[in-house]
Design a protein around this nucleic acid. Sequence first.
DNA 1: TCAAAAGTGTTATCCTTACACCCATGT
DNA 2: ACATGGGTGTAAGGATAACACTTTTGA
Lengths: 316, 316
Amino acid sequence: MAKAQARGTVGNTVDANLIAVLAAVTGGQPRVLTVHGGDALPSGPFEHAHRSLQTGLRIWVEQQTGRPLGYVEQLYTFADRDRAEEPAARRVISISYLGLTREDKPPDGQGAGWRNWYDYFPWEDHRAGPPRFIEDAIAPQLRDWARSAPDRKLRAGRLQRAAINFGLDGFDWNEELVLQRYELLYEAGLAHEALRSQSTGEVSLTLGRAMTADHRRILATGIARLRAKIKYRPVVFELMPATFTLLQLQKSVEALAGRDVHKPNFRRLIEQQELVEETGATSTEAAGRPAKLFRFRQAVLAERGTTGTRLPVSRA
Amino acid sequence: MAKAQARGTVGNTVDANLIAVLAAVTGGQPRVLTVHGGDALPSGPFEHAHRSLQTGLRIWVEQQTGRPLGYVEQLYTFADRDRAEEPAARRVISISYLGLTREDKPPDGQGAGWRNWYDYFPWEDHRAGPPRFIEDAIAPQLRDWARSAPDRKLRAGRLQRAAINFGLDGFDWNEELVLQRYELLYEAGLAHEALRSQSTGEVSLTLGRAMTADHRRILATGIARLRAKIKYRPVVFELMPATFTLLQLQKSVEALAGRDVHKPNFRRLIEQQELVEETGATSTEAAGRPAKLFRFRQAVLAERGTTGTRLPVSRA
DNA sequence: TCAAAAGTGTTATCCTTACACCCATGT
DNA sequence: ACATGGGTGTAAGGATAACACTTTTGA
C-alpha cells in the first residue's frame, strides 16, 4: 500500500523548516516574538531526532527564547517558490505554528524581543474606531491600483475586494480578514517587503513594518486564526495571568480582535458561560472601584469539547 | 536573516508526501475517493518540479484519477513517528488536503473508486437519528475502557469525554467532533487499523472499515473540516451539479453533516441569503410536484469575502 | 384518491445589542 | 465633587426552530 510513496521520490528530498508565531498580550497590547533584532519570526530546522513536528518546534522556540511553550496549533505549510528570495538550490518546506504565552520575563538574548503586532499591520487596530489613514491613505492607493487594471471587469472586482476587505463603501469592517487585507496590499504593490531596503530603512506608519522573507504573511495568518478562534474557543485565557479582572480580560480580547467590545454585555457573556470563577480577592490596581479577581475555570476544557468566548461587539 | 535556516540542517532532509481527501456527493451519499482497490487515500511525493504544494497535489490527483481538481484547501501536516508502520530509515512529512468535486464519471483504473465515507465511520451518520449501535455497542465498550483506567479521576475524565463526543448522558450530538470521536475510539483500542489484518478481514459494522496507515485519521480530519465549513462558507455548491432543486441541495448538506435539516426553514435560509437563483426550469425527476431548478449565484463569491450556509437542524 | 414532494404562514423562544442607570473607590 | 472603573436592569430587534397547513404533480 505504501508503494506509491516510494515510487519516484529519488532526488526529491527537501528541508523542513519550523516557524512560529508566538503571541502574548502585555499592557493591553498584542505582541509577537521576534528574533535577530526584530522583524523575523523564530524558526529552525525540523530534525530527524524530533519525535514530531510540534516537539521539534517546542525545542527550537525554547532554545531561542528560554521560555516553555504552552498552547500550540499548526497554521499552514507552504513550499511556494514565488516569494523565495534566493534561487534555492535545495527546496524548503515551511511548517508554521501559532503559539500562545504570557510575556512574563524578557526573552533570552540573540536579539529576541516582543513587538506590538500592529507595528506590522497598523490598519488592523480599530480599537478607537477605524484609523483615519485607511480612508486618507490606503483607500486612495487601492483605488489607483484598481483603476490601473486593464479591463472594466477586473477594475470592478478590485474595487469590490478593497471595499469588502477594508470596510469601505458601506461594508462593515471584518476583523478576521487579516490575511486577505495583507495579500491585497501585497498584490497592489503596497506591501512588498523589498520596499524597506530600497527606502531609507524608515517604516511607513500606514503600511507597516516589513519582515524577513514572507514572515509578515505568516504573522497575518496567525493573527487571523487567533481572531477567529477567540470567538469559539476559550483561548484568551492562555494569554492571561493566573488571576485577572474582567476589564483586563476584556482589554486582552480587544487587543487581539482589534476592536472594542461592549463592556456590560461582555461581562454577562463571560459569567453566563461560566468560563471564570471568583477568587474572592479584589484588585485595586486600577483607578475606581476595586474589581473582583477571577480565574479561568480549567474544568470547562473537560466539560465541553467545544465552546468559546463570543464577542459582543460595539457597533458604535 | 536566513542564517538560522541554514544552520544545522545537514543530514536532516526529509521526503514530502502529498495526500488528498477528495469528497463528492452522489445519490444522496457522501463519497471519498480511494485508490489501490480501496481503503487508501490518493497520495504521491512532492517533487522539486512542482511550483507549489497545491500544484503538486493537483498533478498527482489528476494522474491517479483522470479528473481535474476544483476547490482545494490544506488540512494538516504531520511527521509523527508514533503510528508509522515501518521503522522508517528516512523521515516522511505528509501534507494533507481536502478537495471537493462532482462524481460525474468513474475514475480511471488503478483501483481507484468512490466509497461512502460512512463505511469508515458508521457512527457518524445520524440522518435517521442516532444509530442504535452507539448506545448498544459503542457506549458499553467505551465505558469498559473508562472503568479500566487506573485512578478515579482518569475514569471520570474518560467517561465524560465519551459522553461529550458521542452525545451520551444528555449531551447533544455535535457532528463536528469527527476527529475527536475517532481519536477516542483509537485510544480505547476500538479502532486500531491493525485489527483488520488480525481478524478474518471482515469489517465491523459498528466500528467501520479500516484504512491504510493513518489514512482514516486524515479522512476524519477532512470530514470534520467540511462539516464545520459548510456552516460559514458556501462550499456545498462545489459538490452540486450546475442546476439542482432545493431538496437535492438539502440532501447533499444532510449527507455531509450526517444529520437531518428542517426543510421549510432550510429553503427560507438559502433563498433569503440569496445564495441561489432560479433557472426558470423545473425538475420532474423525483415523485411529487415538480421543483424549481436553481443555480448557484457565482456573484456571492465576489460580493462577500465570508458568508456561508447555515444549517437549521432538526432537533426532533 | 393517495403518496410524495413543493411551498407558505405564523408563532414562541432565545440571543444580540443597546441604552440607561446606579455603585464604590481614590484624589 | 468628580473621574474612573465596577456592575445591574431591561427592552427592541432579529434569528432560530417548530408547528400547522395548502399546493401540485404522478401513480
